[in-house]
């Protein structure tokens, strides 16, 4: 096997893995802050990316401003979902399964609405920075991929710091771990949950905007992203954004290695069988108990 092929596959695995990781991070943030398994996380990405596409190509806004609005749209959508549905359901002690059903329903509606209002076409965004290509170890690297890797790392670290050091982050964690206790020391638990959804929505939208220069976004892609992000987040212990990032990377690299080492026909078979094995071997997630509790 030649070095170029190996390097290229590894790079592809990392790139795809980060895609899953970005979705997984948002999912984990929402689960961490609200115990809602968000089956529409991929839809945040679709909405974020579509907003940027519309502003950029439809209205000719500057790229940075369009990106900002894209991220904001995710946050707004997240806040809307919390205020309109989740808050009401929690107040009335809805059973646990119903949050999954709710988010599935929202995901279906958004996907269908994107098809209805924006059509079946898939959209691409221009890469960040320039369109330069670099050759590393005989593998071709687009400049955007470097941006993607850098920003993903920054987001993961930033999120970790946010939960550990900022006052809002600490309050959000407290409100989720012990809502009654948090309320008794004056934390607005409901507001913190709204923040959690805004954060998750913004992260989802950011993921969508980051991947759209590489992966064309269309009305169908949301569910696919959610499934992979769900896998990444669970591998990482579900409540830990850092774990989700590692879970995503593991998933992406396994996929690439399955194609190179075995056969592209059996990529999904190998990847998801391994996933089951990993879960059986490490029932606490990749980071073990620390991954389940830590921030």
């Amino acid at each position: 096997m030649n070095v170029g092929l190996l390097a290229q596959s590894l790079l592809a695995g990392i790139t795809n893995g980060l895609t899953y990781a970005l979705i997984g991070i948002g999912l984990a943030a929402i689960f961490k802050g609200s115990r809602v398994p968000n089956a529409m996380q991929g839809e945040f990405s679709v909405v974020g990316a579509i907003v940027v596409v519309l502003l950029l190509t439809g209205h000719g806004w500057p790229y940075w401003l369009a990106i900002l609005c894209g991220g904001l749209s995710g946050a707004i959508l997240g806040a809307f979902i919390e205020v309109a549905f989740i808050r009401y359901m929690i107040r009335n002690a809805a059973p646990e399964d119903s949050y999954l059903l709710l988010t599935i329903g929202i995901g279906l509606s958004i996907s269908a609405a994107v098809l209805y209002f924006f059509g079946r076409e898939s959209h691409l965004l221009p890469g960040f920075g320039s369109d330069n290509l670099y050759i590393i170890l005989d593998a071709v690297v687009r400049e955007h991929v470097i941006w993607l890797i850098a920003i993903s790392i920054l987001l993961t670290i930033g999120l970790r710091q946010f939960y550990r050091t900022t006052s809002v982050g600490l309050k959000m964690m407290a409100a989720s771990i012990d809502p009654v206790g948090a309320a008794s020391i004056g934390i607005d638990v409901t507001l913190m949950r709204t923040f959690t959804f805004m954060l998750g929505g913004a992260l989802g939208a950011a993921a969508g905007i980051l991947i759209t220069p590489i992966i064309p976004v269309d009305y169908m892609i949301g569910l696919q992203l959610t499934l992979k992000g769900f896998a990444a987040a669970i591998l990482g212990g579900l409540t830990n954004p850092l774990g989700a990032a590692i879970g995503g990377l593991v998933l992406g690299i396994i996929e690439a290695m399955a194609i190179v080492g075995v056969s592209s026909s059996y990529k999904d078979v190998i990847t998801f069988s391994l996933l089951i094995l990993i879960m059986i071997a490490m029932p606490q997630g990749l980071l073990g108990r620390a991954g389940r509790t830590g921030g």
């Binding site: 809805a94 059973p95 119903s98 279906l108 098809l115």
Partner: peptide, 21 residues
């Protein structure tokens, strides 16, 4: 017509939110 899938999603949401049991 084309709206039907959106409405189906909305119907699901309606059931969950309004009928907890």
């Amino acid at each position: 017509g084309g709206l039907h899938q959106i409405l189906f999603g909305v119907a699901l949401i309606g059931v969950v939110v309004l009928m907890p049991a």
